[in-house]
Design a binder for these strands. Structure first.
Length: 614
DNA sequence: CCCCCCCC
């Protein structure tokens, strides 16, 4: 009989007296009254699958979130409305006057069936102290109040006492964090003010420095994983010195407050967590003796076909069979001039689609998986190049033939039929774009403004237009002639030009273009900025030559501008928010410019027509 | 307090 199994009163105890709850109800048995799948709040950005459930102990019911690792009870069809469950691990939270239980582990007592709602349970109100806090005006009392801290995770599994080396005493010791106080990453929020997590460092960045007008410093960040979720942690300046060597990629640590928890900025976050950690000098980090109990990696795959609906610049995990491996190549970054090693992979999956994945640096150099291996990539950035393509971020990871169900399934599919399939690419679809909402990045000029390119993030696009005007004032600046310096030099007034960066004076500068060009198409006009390489291509002369003309032959100087005017070209552009005179505005820089190739343009149009008429 | 993740 189900009713007899249910631990009546457990819910109130969990929220009002957790010590009593632990003793009296070590494993609460509750009835599931409701299961709701939560829609992804960010369409186009894959997030973890989420379920909200309502659990009752006959006297009370409470809203619960299923931690993602507990989703299996839904997937397996075990958890249904009416089911009786044993809650093996949970986290009680009281947030904004509401009681919420995060369910980290549960069993469905299937032998008890799915009876109708038992009794007439009442909503579990927030604990009295919570209600009181929430009547205070403003957030300070809420954030600062010790009572608003959620109860520690309740683990019903037997725990082995762990040996902890004392960081200060240097010797060994026992104790430290009782295992029962370990929080799941998923329960961390600004509302929790005292916690310890047990996490694996799944990736660690290099130390980076920044120099801006108002600040400079250094930082590094790590991605942390436990069975409940992931979170990024960043250390700045002195905390870099304190923690960089201690935190090793792949190792497991206890990390304890004090530690700042703040909202992760969505546009930069590549992990499925609303929050991120900022390590403080007081943050306690200890390597765990037990390195094996925390998972190694956590994937949230989307299929290759689904990439079509994923927005550009989202971060996703993919898994596929390795169809092609290219040779190692080198490229030079256009922004930093730094060289990068890269390698292109082509992955296919059982949706019938293929996608190109670029891997970088060491991962690219040391890549030696054989074709037809299964490759799982965690943390790839979605680009719209070629319809859809992927680039493995430096914070991402790659696993070859991982021992996970998705990999075995793909292997089986590939052996049975996939090997002989042909695969669709996203570029086939996207080129039809003009009529159907194009996915490629060719834009009319009006679209640049209408689509707010560059406003929220940096956008790249190609625009074809006719040059209608070139600004003659300040078309060039005197640059340092040193190899790849290009910084503006100062006229010292004695015939020499000084470069502050190189700390050298030169006899003459090398002029470089920074030319504003107005281009036009049938939808409008826009000003774009051309730098030296592109402007040289447009003008057919170097900036030095133009400076000389200006000095010696004003008519010839103007004629050179006239000659370049009215050319029709294709411009590869970057639109980015920049600040001029404290006014933010979108600046469009030309990355590449090329005269229109009428033959290939005509060919492209013919292909488009052909695809539309299929 | 960063927020770059590169190239076609």
């Amino acid at each position: 009989m189900a009713e007899a199994e249910i631990t009546q009163g457990a819910i109130e105890a969990i929220f009002c007296d957790r010590e009593r709850a632990a003793v009296q109800f070590p494993v609460p048995v509750l009835q599931c009254l409701h299961i709701k799948f939560l829609e992804n709040k960010n369409p186009g950005v894959p997030g973890p699958e989420r379920y909200r459930i309502v659990l009752s102990d006959i006297r009370n019911y409470v809203q619960c979130m299923l931690a993602t690792q507990a989703n299996r009870v839904v997937h397996d069809g075990l958890l249904q409305k009416g089911s009786i469950v044993r809650v093996k691990q949970y986290q009680a939270q009281s947030v904004k006057g509401k009681s919420i239980l995060i369910i980290l582990d549960l069993d469905v007592m299937t032998h008890l069936g799915t009876p109708d709602k038992i009794g007439d349970p009442k909503l579990m109100e927030a604990a009295p102290s919570e209600q009181q806090q929430n009547t205070t005006i403003g957030g300070a009392g809420f954030y600062g109040g010790a009572k608003s801290e959620p109860a520690a995770v309740h683990e019903t599994k037997p725990q082995v006492q762990r040996q902890v080396a004392s960081r200060t005493g240097g010797g060994g010791g026992s104790g430290g964090h009782a295992a029962s106080t370990i929080y799941p990453i998923e329960a961390i929020s600004p509302y929790a003010n005292k916690w310890t997590i047990k996490v694996r460092v799944t990736s660690k960045s290099d130390i980076r420095t920044w120099h801006k007008t108002h600040s400079e410093g250094k930082l590094f960040s790590v991605n942390l994983l436990d069975e409940s979720g992931e979170i990024r942690a960043t250390a700045f300046n002195q905390e870099v010195d304190q923690f960089y060597d201690l935190l090793q990629e792949g190792s497991v640590y206890y990390i304890s407050t004090p530690c700042k928890v703040q909202l992760a900025k969505k546009q930069f976050s590549n992990l499925a967590n609303d929050y991120e950690l900022m390590l403080e000098s007081g943050t306690v980090i200890e390597r765990a003796d037990d390195q094996s109990s925390v998972p190694q990696v956590r994937f949230n795959f989307c299929t290759i076909q689904e990439l079509q609906g994923v927005e550009k610049d989202a971060t996703v995990d993919v898994i596929g069979v390795l169809k092609e491996v290219n040779e190692l190549e080198q490229i030079t970054s256009k922004t930093t001039q730094k060289p990068y090693d890269k390698r292109e992979l082509t992955l296919v999956d059982d949706t019938g689609y293929s996608v190109r994945v670029t891997i970088w640096g060491k991962t690219a150099r040391e890549f030696d998986a054989s074709p037809e291996s299964v490759i799982a990539c965690k943390g790839t950035r979605v680009s719209d190049f070629g319809g859809r393509s992927l680039s493995l971020l430096s914070s991402g990871t790659m696993a070859i033939d991982p021992d996970i169900p998705e990999a075995h399934k793909l292997k089986g599919w590939y052996e049975a039929q996939g090997r002989n399939n042909t695969f669709a690419t996203h570029s086939n679809l996207s080129s039809v774009g003009a009529a159907t909402g194009r996915k490629d990045d060719a834009k009319w000029i009006a679209q640049i403004k209408n689509e707010n390119l560059g406003v929220d993030k940096t956008d790249y696009f190609t625009v074809k237009g006719t040059i209608v005007h070139m600004r003659q004032e300040n078309f060039a600046y005197p640059a340092c002639p040193s190899e790849s310096c290009n910084k503006k030099v100062t006229d010292m007034g004695d015939g020499t030009w000084r470069c502050e960066k190189c700390n050298i004076t030169h006899d003459r500068p090398q002029y470089r273009y920074i030319m504003s060009v107005c281009i036009s198409d049938h939808t409008g006009n826009v000003w774009i900025s051309c730098f030296d390489e592109q402007a040289r291509l447009i003008m057919g002369k170097t900036a030095d030559e133009m400076m000389e003309l200006r000095e010696q032959d004003q008519a010839a100087f103007e004629a050179a501008f006239d000659a370049a005017n009215c050319r029709k070209m294709s411009f590869r552009c970057r639109a980015k928010m920049e600040t001029f005179a404290e006014q933010p505005r979108v600046r469009i820089s030309v990355w590449n410019a090329a005269p229109l190739d009428y033959k290939s343009e005509a060919h492209r149009l013919a292909e488009l027509i052909k695809e539309m008429s299929v």
